[in-house]
Simulated scan of single mutants.
Amino acid sequence: MRLISYHEHGSPDVLRVEDVPAPAPGPGRLLLRTEAVGVNFVETQLRGDTAPFPSPLPGRPGGDVVGRVEALGPDTDGPVPGTRVVAFGVPAAYADQVVVEAERALVVPEDIDAATATALGSSGQTAWSVLDAARIAEGDTVLVHAAAGAVGHLVTQLAKLRGAGRVIGTVGSPAKADFVRAHGADDVVDYRQPGWADEVRRLTGGRGVDVVLDSVEGAVFKDGLKLLRPYGRLVYYGFAGSGGKVAQVAMTELFGLTYVVGVSLDAWTKADPARVAEARADLVRLVAAGALRVAVHTTLPLTRAAEAHRVIESRSQLGRVVLVP
């Protein structure tokens, strides 16, 4: 079968198609035949060795995989062969067949197309976990960074569904503004422009925001923290703009009755399994009903994984980038 990997760090050109034996599922795991793979930004950072944690070689990009169960490993309780599922955090995901942990697999209805269904993996579940941590109250003003991204356009919609009174989305280029408004934002601000935080203050009459959802970090992190009203919450869940250097917060910066909480999908799934099961069921229901709209920016063949990475690194995407066999 085909597997995309890299043996050195660098540009997307280091990605290679390899011919390898099909994997075999061990205990607690499933073998899937791939239908679609959701490409996540962090994999471009790992490939380029710019993530704020080690990126060992050889690298085999992970992702969100939609596929059919072909086999169950020994002593595995899971969907029967033939069942269509999506799994998140799949290692070596850019492949014709993948092995996934059974507990990370979610059954996908047949009427949800494969590219759309990739959002039921890490992007949709991350959006849900971020909003759980934000504890949004009815009428809150919420600032969503990178609101046109794979997670951003989902979290913007979900914030509204949870009762946010006003959502301000930030973008890295004016060309994304209409897309962000179409996916639930009341206002849009370009965070790459000097004075972007002052524009947020103007939009809120100088009061700032109740919640900041930050997957960008870098230069916007401290300004976002200063935008919080008393008892405001900044939820940190990514580092797309960090350049490999994680932001630092002095405790004295929280004296304004503000909170910072970090979220990872693994921590969320372990914290309250019953809550997570409900959230996953709700995600499927919302996507199937069209109440949560998944934007697919482009769908590319598996062999064009390098192009998929270039699209993401260009910061031009609107929603998901997906690979198909």
Results as ranks from 00 to 15, higher is better:
residue 48 G to C: 09
residue 55 S to T: 12
residue 173 S to L: 02
residue 210 D to M: 14
residue 54 P to L: 07
residue 73 G to K: 02
residue 134 A to F: 01
residue 195 G to I: 09
residue 259 Y to V: 13
residue 204 T to D: 08
residue 9 H to M: 07
residue 209 V to H: 08
residue 314 S to K: 08
residue 308 A to D: 14
residue 217 E to W: 08
residue 281 A to E: 11
residue 148 A to R: 00
residue 261 V to R: 13
residue 52 P to D: 12
residue 69 V to Y: 01
residue 223 D to I: 07
residue 237 Y to T: 11
residue 257 L to I: 04
residue 84 R to W: 06
residue 196 W to I: 13
residue 124 G to D: 12
residue 100 V to G: 04
residue 310 R to K: 13
residue 201 R to V: 02
residue 309 H to P: 03
residue 21 P to C: 03
residue 101 E to L: 15
residue 307 E to A: 12
residue 315 R to Q: 14
residue 36 A to T: 06
residue 91 P to I: 00
residue 325 P to W: 00
residue 286 L to W: 04
residue 51 A to Y: 14
residue 88 F to N: 12
residue 207 R to G: 10
residue 205 G to K: 08
residue 52 P to W: 05
residue 170 T to L: 05
residue 166 R to T: 14
residue 3 L to W: 00
residue 302 L to W: 00
residue 185 A to E: 04
residue 226 K to W: 13
residue 267 A to V: 02
residue 72 L to C: 06
residue 119 A to Q: 12
residue 141 T to I: 11
residue 119 A to T: 10
residue 25 P to R: 04
residue 35 E to Y: 05
residue 129 S to A: 15
residue 212 V to K: 12
residue 115 A to Y: 04
residue 227 L to W: 05
residue 195 G to M: 06
residue 240 A to H: 04
residue 21 P to T: 10
residue 146 A to E: 01
residue 43 E to T: 05
residue 106 L to I: 11
residue 185 A to G: 01
residue 115 A to T: 11
residue 221 F to P: 01
residue 314 S to A: 15
residue 45 Q to D: 04
residue 17 V to N: 01
residue 196 W to D: 10
residue 104 R to K: 14
residue 241 G to H: 09
residue 135 R to K: 14
residue 260 V to F: 06
residue 203 L to Q: 13
residue 196 W to P: 12
residue 161 L to A: 14
residue 114 A to Y: 02
residue 29 R to F: 00
residue 125 Q to M: 11
residue 140 D to M: 02
residue 147 A to C: 03
residue 293 R to K: 11
residue 210 D to E: 15
residue 300 L to Q: 07
residue 51 A to M: 09
residue 96 D to F: 05
residue 287 V to A: 03
residue 278 E to S: 10
residue 285 R to S: 15
residue 316 S to N: 12
residue 217 E to Y: 09
residue 201 R to T: 03
residue 235 V to E: 13
residue 102 A to M: 11
residue 239 F to S: 15
residue 185 A to R: 02
residue 205 G to T: 07
residue 112 I to W: 06
residue 178 D to P: 00
residue 295 A to D: 04
residue 236 Y to T: 13
residue 255 F to W: 13
residue 260 V to Y: 05
residue 16 R to V: 07
residue 279 A to H: 07
residue 101 E to Y: 10
residue 87 A to W: 04
residue 224 G to D: 07
residue 46 L to Y: 12
residue 301 P to E: 07
residue 192 R to P: 01
residue 121 G to K: 02
residue 211 V to L: 09
residue 322 V to E: 04
residue 277 A to S: 12
residue 78 G to T: 02
residue 204 T to L: 11
residue 101 E to H: 15
residue 170 T to K: 07
residue 280 R to E: 06
residue 298 T to E: 15
residue 246 V to N: 12
residue 113 D to M: 09
residue 170 T to D: 00
residue 244 G to R: 00
residue 219 A to Y: 04
residue 312 I to L: 15
residue 57 L to V: 08
residue 166 R to C: 15
residue 218 G to T: 08
residue 23 P to K: 05
residue 320 R to L: 09
residue 17 V to S: 08
residue 107 V to Q: 14
residue 269 T to Y: 12
residue 182 A to F: 01
residue 152 G to N: 01
residue 200 V to Q: 05
residue 177 A to Q: 08
residue 116 T to I: 06
residue 224 G to F: 07
residue 89 G to E: 07
residue 128 W to P: 05
residue 124 G to Y: 01
residue 86 V to A: 08
residue 53 F to C: 10
residue 234 L to N: 06
residue 144 V to I: 03
residue 145 H to G: 07
